[in-house]
Each structure stands twice: as C-alpha cells, then as structure tokens.
Design a binder for these strands. Structure first.
Length: 419
RNA sequence: GCGGGCGUCGCCAAGUGGUUAAGGCAGCGGCUUGUGGUGCCGCCAUACGGGGGUUCGAAUCCCCUCGCUCGCCCCA
C-alpha cells in the first residue's frame, strides 16, 4: 500500500468480478418475482432534500439523528443521501400524482447510505430491494406483501429463515401503550441499562427490543403491547395471521418486535437469519398508514418492506451455489489473416447469442490451448495459417479431444439453439 | 460514537532485534516458433499499512495515526 494510494472510503465496497455472480442472481430473481406479482419498478434519486427524511422517518430516530450523509450544496440547500427507500418512493408518488390514479404496487432497488461503523453485513453504502404497496388497507395486502418477500427469499435457496410478526396497533393504541410503558419503566428506571434509560426519553418503545439480557429479564413483567390494542387492531392482526397460516408461511409472534422508524403502525415484521452474526435482519417492514399524509399527500394506507442485499449475498455464498458461466466457445488464432477470421467468427456467433471468448494474445497454440482449457469452454475453434488459407476451420471438442474441419457458415449448426 | 482483535507480494502465509525478508496459490515467460490441464526451469515485496521514537542494528520493542475486522449502538 503506497502512501497516497487511493482507496474506497470507509464502509464502501467494490464488487469484484469473481464475486459478482451472487449479485446478478439476486437481482434477476428479485426482478422476476416482482414481474410475476405485477409490481411496477420505480427509481428515485439517491439525493433528496434533508427535510424529506427528517419529516418522514422521524427526527428522533438514530437514522436521522446521527446516521445521515448530509451536506449543503452550492445552492445552500441541505441535501441528504437517502438512508432508506420508502420516503423517496412516497415523495415521488405524491409529487407525480400517482396516487390519484389509484393504488400503487411498487418496488425499487438501489444504494442507500448510512454513516455507521461498518460491520459484517453493515456497510455505509449498502443496497436494498424494497416493495411498497400504496393505497392498500386490507389485511390481505399485508399478507401479499409478506408472501412476496418470503417466496423471493425461498427462491434464493436460503435456509433457516425466521419470520417474526407483531402488531404495533393504531396511533391511539401506540400512544396509550407508550404511556403505560413509560409509567412502568419509570418505576424501574434504576434497573435499566444506560442505553435504555436514554431511550426512555427519546423512543421508549424501542426499549422493548433491547439486547441487554437484564433489561429483557426486567421486561418480562412489563405491560403487554398486544393487551393495549383496541378490538379493531386486534381483529386486523388476527386476519393477517390467518392469511399467513392459510398460505403455510411459518411465523412467530414477537411482542417485543418494534421497528426503528417512526412511521410504522399495525403490522410489523422482520425476517432474520441465524447465520449472519449481529446483523441478522434480512428483511424488515410493516404498515405505515400515516406517512403519505405526513409528507403532504392525502391519507393513504400503505405497507412495505426492504431487504438488505449485502446480507442476502453473504447468505447465498454460504447456502446456495453461485458459479460463473463458462464460454460456449474459445477461439484460438495465429497470424494476421487468421485473427481477422477469428474476430469475425466470434462476432457472428455472438450475434446468435452464444458466449464466445476470443484470445488475442497471438501466443503459441500450446499456450492458447491451455487458456482454452482453463476457461472451461466445451469447444475451441482453431485458426492458423493453414485454416486461414483453406477456409476450413478446426473445431475441437475439448472433452473428447476430437476435432473436425468446418467452414465458417457451418459453424452455427454445431451449437445448441440460442438461449 | 464506544469496546476487543488484526495489519508481511493480487490471495494464503513463515519470520518474535542481527548479514541478501521462507514457502504455496495465482500470474507471466520458457522447455515445445501449429495443439491439452500434469512435469521441469526461470521471473514476480530494496519491502513488512503510514509517521515518529528506542537501538550499533527493527517486519520484529514503544508512541501516534490510518485501515480492516468482531461486538455494542442502530438497522436491511
């Protein structure tokens, strides 16, 4: 490492060719699932007005309070690199009048930025695939959103995933419960860990999913969130559960599951993997019926989720196969005339959809043959002086060691139809 | 932001104060100026993340710094 060698900023990662396979597979499968579910893609800017996130996510949350990449631009506007996708999607839907055309089923995928200490499965620039159903209030839509996420993850070949489910109730339920909880916690304040004491002021509900064992022990006797829900909220929660059960999606109720962003209410869920270390959440989401209104739109019921792509790629590398594709043909040539024929042959085959690796090292045949073998191509096309002048090209099967002479225009028939 | 661990070639890795910094993989070239993965030969870190210090002498000891990593926090 040289003194002034340029390198990535902390928490930013290059995705190198040898590791890119999992990413491409993940993106392809994600896209396909969205296509099948008739969910439309939306792309919004990476950079938004800071106020969008402050208003949307909640000023008291850590994401907004201490994790945003915010700067003042040349026009003296406060800009922020998006720390999550939902706020931008909702902004775009309002701004472009999408919601006046009826409910929207949308998905997105892209980079997000959070200024945190990097860790396994946690980057400063990370990537999410997210789904947002805007204008859907029925419990069935919660179920559909979750089943799309679940099936996508299953299709990725991932194992031992756990779906945890909770209801945060309506705004009123939450307010009631919050008061109950705060009253109770204040009586036990001296038994709380320092972090939780802090959160008692800022975001008391989040104390529920503290990782501190003593705090968790203490919370066993705390007021129950589900008990604070009104009958309507309970009924809705019940329907979501029934929907999941009917589809045979395994889930566990977790009354301590509280999502970190302010806009969640009613359904909240998380899908976690035990194979990831501390950053176990692979998908998280829930209902956010108040957000559209909060950002200046008409009251609109919504549910959505986001998946962390880095974490999924980590799991895929351990739990499913990600092999790189070999060429269909490796083209070897030597001599000016032969090289001209070679590039032309490669071009024609490529135009038919075949993967063709062209060797232009000009090295000896032995050398090029070795490279052909290493490439794992099943066939090699050899063109030297003799072939170039006769027009009879040598097509060699690298498995059987047999070869035959073919003319350029016959070459196509040796390949299986275009995939 | 707070704790712990670690930084020797693209990757893995020996070396723990003393002349020229092992080795393996990968890569490149050759043995073979038109045909095969082996095999054999050669090349591949004036340099041990960076900067200071201690010492006759430092990759090896000390300080600072940067980076990576694991956990806390937070979350996807």
């Amino acid at each position: 490492m040289q003194v002034n060698q340029l390198q990535t900023l902390r928490g930013m990662a290059d995705q190198l060719p040898m590791g890119i396979n999992g990413w491409q597979q993940l993106e392809a499968i994600g896209r396909e699932h969205m296509r099948r579910a008739c969910v439309a893609e939306i792309r919004t800017p990476l950079l938004e007005a800071t106020e969008l996130f402050a208003r949307g996510i909640g000023a008291a949350t850590d994401v907004v309070g201490k994790e945003m990449y915010t700067f003042i631009d040349r026009g003296e506007r406060s800009c922020t690199l998006r720390p999550e996708g939902t706020a931008g999607v909702v902004r775009a839907a309002i701004q472009n009048g999408l919601l006046s055309q009826g409910p929207q089923k949308l998905w997105y995928s892209g980079a997000m930025f959070r200024y945190e200490r990097p860790q396994a499965g946690r980057m400063r620039q990370f990537h999410q695939l997210g789904l947002e159903f805007l204008g859907f209030n029925e419990p069935r839509s919660d179920v559909e959103a979750i089943v799309i996420a679940w099936d996508l993850l299953m299709d990725l070949g991932l194992k031992e995933l756990k779906l945890e489910l909770n209801s945060l109730g309506s705004k009123e339920d939450r307010l009631n419960y919050r008061n109950q909880l705060v009253n109770w916690l204040e009586q036990h304040q001296n038994q709380l860990d320092p972090d939780s004491q802090e959160r008692l002021q800022t975001n008391p509900l989040r104390i529920l999913d503290s990782k501190n064992p003593n705090t968790q022990e203490l919370l066993k006797t705390a007021p129950d969130l589900l008990a604070a829900l009104c009958p309507e909220s309970l009924e809705r929660f019940e329907q979501v559960q029934q929907g999941l059960t009917a589809l045979q999606i395994p889930y566990q109720l977790n009354p301590r599951l509280v999502r970190g962003l302010d806009y969640y209410g009613h359904t909240a869920f998380e899908i976690t993997s035990s194979a990831l270390g501390a950053q176990a959440t692979v998908c998280g989401g829930g209902r956010y019926n108040g957000l559209v209104e909060q950002l200046g739109g008409a009251p609109t019921a919504c549910i959505g989720w986001a998946m962390g792509l880095e974490r999924l790629v980590l799991l895929m590398q351990n739990q499913s196969s990600t092999t790189a594709a070999a060429p269909d043909l490796y083209v070897i040539s030597q001599g000016e005339k032969a090289e001209a024929i070679a590039i032309n042959a490669a071009r024609e085959l490529r135009q038919k959809g075949h993967r063709v690796e062209l060797d232009h090292s000009g090295a000896g045949f032995a050398k090029q043959m070795k490279r052909a073998l290493k490439s794992a191509a099943p066939l090699a096309l050899l063109i030297g002086e003799a072939e170039a002048s006769s027009g009879q090209l040598q097509l060699k099967n690298l498995q059987t060691n047999s070869s035959e002479l073919v003319e350029l225009h016959q070459l196509l028939s040796f390949f299986s139809p275009t995939r």
